[in-house]
Design a protein around this nucleic acid. Sequence first.
DNA 1: TTGGAATGTCAACAAGGCTGACGTATTCTG
DNA 2: CAGAATACGTCAGCCTTGTTGACATTCCAA
Lengths: 168, 168
Amino acid sequence: MTQNTQPKSVANQLFLTDEQLRKGTEAMFFAYRGFTADPDRILADRGYGRAHHRAVHFIHRSPGTTVNNLLNILGVTKQSLNRVLRTLIADGLVSSHVGQKDKRERHLHLTDAGVALEQSLSNAQRDRMRTAYKAAGAEAVAGFRQVLEAMMDEDMRHQYEALKDKNE
Amino acid sequence: MTQNTQPKSVANQLFLTDEQLRKGTEAMFFAYRGFTADPDRILADRGYGRAHHRAVHFIHRSPGTTVNNLLNILGVTKQSLNRVLRTLIADGLVSSHVGQKDKRERHLHLTDAGVALEQSLSNAQRDRMRTAYKAAGAEAVAGFRQVLEAMMDEDMRHQYEALKDKNE
DNA sequence: TTGGAATGTCAACAAGGCTGACGTATTCTG
DNA sequence: CAGAATACGTCAGCCTTGTTGACATTCCAA
């Protein structure tokens, strides 16, 4: 349907051919596998999965966040998140306190053990990311980020932007 | 965008700070969600999941491929893939023939209905990709691909490279 | 020709999504 | 103040998709 075998007038659009887009798709698929591979190994050793990683990551990012807040960021149901939080709290990696202002809320923090796990996960992931960044160079990295940001859903881009410059 | 108020030796490496790497991590997380969102909706309507998408995609890419071959590309166990293939075959989207040369092998093809599904999935995914590519521009896309390729595991990069230029 | 390797199938289990229903505490609002 | 709305937890049950284990068939090499 959108086969691009056009004249030169569109030569500057060559990166938009179906073939180029398909390559991008497959690159995303294979790269995401690499992206999660290292943390997955660490998690498997401790009987956790990717869901635990995501929870730990975002609690670390936003200490004191509420359950509801986390729900929006992670995009899962509360039943699903609750299962994960329950094990993390039981294992002493996450603490949950009733809110001061609003007592319906629970504020989540990593314990020392939780911070330690987060560190080992993010170190593993960062190492791979750093290697990839170094290999590709600063300009490629800028392009990488631009395309990824353009690929997000509206809502997610807002979540992302809100977190983006938090610790600068 | 890059404020160069630093000495050169530092400025060159600014994209390798932990903060930059963390942003890249989160960009991957949110972008991958967007990346899969559109096909996921189509699949859900038909009672399929992402595993079906992957199988259909790579059978389309490499018609006549064997189960074992697909296993290597997808990186799952044969039992897991088999369940998905079984439903796709039962639903008449994929055909499986015993190999001529080696009768242990099964060669996989998409039926017309399978091709139709593949089209609707890849059209949806390409649309988002195209929009993102357009918004980011050709140079950003080149960087995007470079970083993704550098992020893959060795083995996966080989799989990816092998597929990469197949239809050019 | 026979034993091992390769290919693929079936069965059963676990993680982690989902929906729906319900209970409890707390806060907001008319 | 009463009732609606919000935040959270939990139970039950479903689905997809990953896992291991057991097994049949086929091929190949000693």
